[in-house]
Design a binder for these strands. Structure first.
Length: 168
DNA sequence: AATGACAGTCCCA
DNA sequence: TGGGACTGTCATT
């Protein structure tokens, strides 16, 4: 019953470097920060990619550029990350945070109805496969500390500075 | 099946 | 300032 989930990887060029976007037939499932290593998979593979996915990718690239220049994206691609129920609720809450604003781990915990699962929220943020578009970088600790970031704290600070969040 | 380690936060001393 | 309790998930045993 489960056909092998065909995945497509496409490069998205932005002012902050080249991200790699992964798509399933349901939408964007993963986004990778620019690798230090050279890009080995240029977009010419796109010829074999369904038009639907190319269209989604155009939206992704545009949304990334908008966020990375300090704005809110006018459109987002469909996103279909895989995760537990808990993680999906956390990620949904993250998407409600506009550019330039932050929430604490405990605020997210309260928003999803698990006010005491603050630490678990940190875990779910770390498991977010679509950084930037699902803005886990806008979650900081209650005491204004930056917390952690699976993509590396340099990226978290860079994203917060782009959004002109004071203190970072 | 149990344990330990985490991107946190609160409480009590 | 520091230790303990609490949460969900994953790796290890």
């Amino acid at each position: 019953m489960s056909s092998s989930p065909r995945l497509y990887e496409l490069a998205a060029n932005t002012p902050e470097g080249t991200f790699i976007a992964h798509y399933s037939e349901g939408g964007l499932v993963e986004l990778n920060f620019p690798a230090k290593a050279k890009i080995t998979r240029p977009n010419h593979l796109a010829k074999t990619v369904p038009p639907q996915i190319l269209a989604w990718h155009a939206v992704t690239e545009s949304a990334l550029k908008q966020i990375l220049t300090g704005g809110n994206p006018s459109r987002l691609p469909p996103m279909a990350p895989t995760g537990t129920e808990f993680q999906c609720r956390v990620w949904a809450a993250l998407r409600q945070i506009p550019s330039g604003q932050t929430k604490s781990y405990s605020e997210i915990a309260r928003l999803i109805g698990r006010p005491q699962a603050v630490r678990a929220v940190g875990g779910a943020c770390g498991a977010n496969p679509i950084p930037v578009l699902v803005p886990c970088h806008r979650v900081i600790a209650m005491n204004q500390k930056i917390g952690g970031f699976s993509g590396g704290l340099k990226w978290k600070r860079r994203l917060l500075r782009i959004e002109e969040v004071s203190g970072f």
